[in-house]
Computed example of a mutant assay.
Amino acid sequence: MTKARALTEETAHRTLVAVCERVGLDPAGAELIRIGSNAVYRLAKPVIVRIGRDGETVENARRQVAVARWLASENYPATRALDVDQPVELDGHVSTLWESASEREEYAPLAQVAELIRRLHELEAPASLALPRIQPFAKLDEYLPDLERVDGADAAFMRERIEQLRSRYEALDFALKPGVIHGDANVGNVILDREGHPLLIDLDSFCTGPREWDLVQTALFFERFAWHTEEEYRQFVEVYGFDVMTWPGYPVLAEYREISMTLWLCGKAVADEGAAAEVRKRIEAIRTGGSRRDWAPF
């Protein structure tokens, strides 16, 4: 893979134009929806183009496309990969193309999120997909260099906390049968299509592992952040059929998610003082057991 140019709005748009030329699409009038882990564009034609940062690999992108096509064969409501030769690698960035399900970014109610997770967990992936097993701490290890961007004492605390968490995770006894998981299941990854039907998106983290991983973020968002109401969470539990908060290992997965969210934000801390202040606030809350209800979404 060639060395990638930094993913700025300028370089992302340049890559978009080249990708569209490669697959025979028109980039005129493309709208930049967001630029973060990916640069995401919506074309005038109902197509979404996702341009990965330099951490994205062709293998990972190819797996996302394969997963999408498998889910389509199962008539499972998920984002559909565009029928072109993809992924596309240009200038060190790997791009994928998807059917645009809606012109609005509207999220599904939690009951529908639970329904899609439950249905996903009923599926058995073919061996040909070669889904990897979840390796949560490999992901945290990738983020560790970003701790160089924060206060030394905070960085030392977080490194020690991660090692403690690693030991606690290895001792967990999971309650649910392992299998296919989305890996990043939460309300932000279930949108409503043009007809108002829920659709699972962002297949980047698809893998196999304990099903509890697909339930913990909804519980965390309710219990610690108050981003969901109690009624919404109870509906989620009723539809899925299991309350992960009643499982003794819940605090371990919840803390993992908090730390992962915080380390990811460290990567933005150098260029964004707001992000840096948020990182300091989050680390202090983790250190002291303070409230998470003032954590700002990024």
Score class of each variant (00 low, 15 high):
181 I>C: 04
118 R>V: 10
205 S>M: 04
90 L>G: 07
189 N>P: 04
206 F>A: 02
239 V>R: 13
65 V>D: 00
156 A>E: 04
230 E>P: 13
270 V>N: 08
229 T>V: 06
239 V>S: 06
197 H>D: 00
17 V>H: 14
168 R>D: 07
240 Y>K: 01
278 E>Q: 09
44 A>P: 11
183 G>M: 11
14 R>C: 05
108 A>V: 14
132 P>E: 09
6 A>E: 12
163 E>L: 10
20 C>K: 03
245 M>F: 11
169 Y>E: 01
298 F>L: 01
113 V>F: 02
221 F>E: 01
129 L>A: 04
97 L>T: 01
223 E>D: 07
100 S>N: 13
254 A>C: 14
293 R>S: 03
255 E>L: 15
173 D>I: 08
22 R>L: 02
126 P>V: 08
45 K>T: 11
242 F>H: 13
12 A>I: 11
66 A>E: 11
196 G>M: 10
264 W>C: 00
43 L>R: 11
246 T>M: 09
9 E>A: 07
227 W>F: 15
146 D>H: 13
190 V>K: 06
157 F>T: 09
86 Q>H: 13
250 Y>N: 03
178 P>S: 10
137 F>G: 05
23 V>G: 00
191 I>E: 03
19 V>G: 01
37 S>K: 10
249 G>V: 15
81 A>C: 14
15 T>M: 09
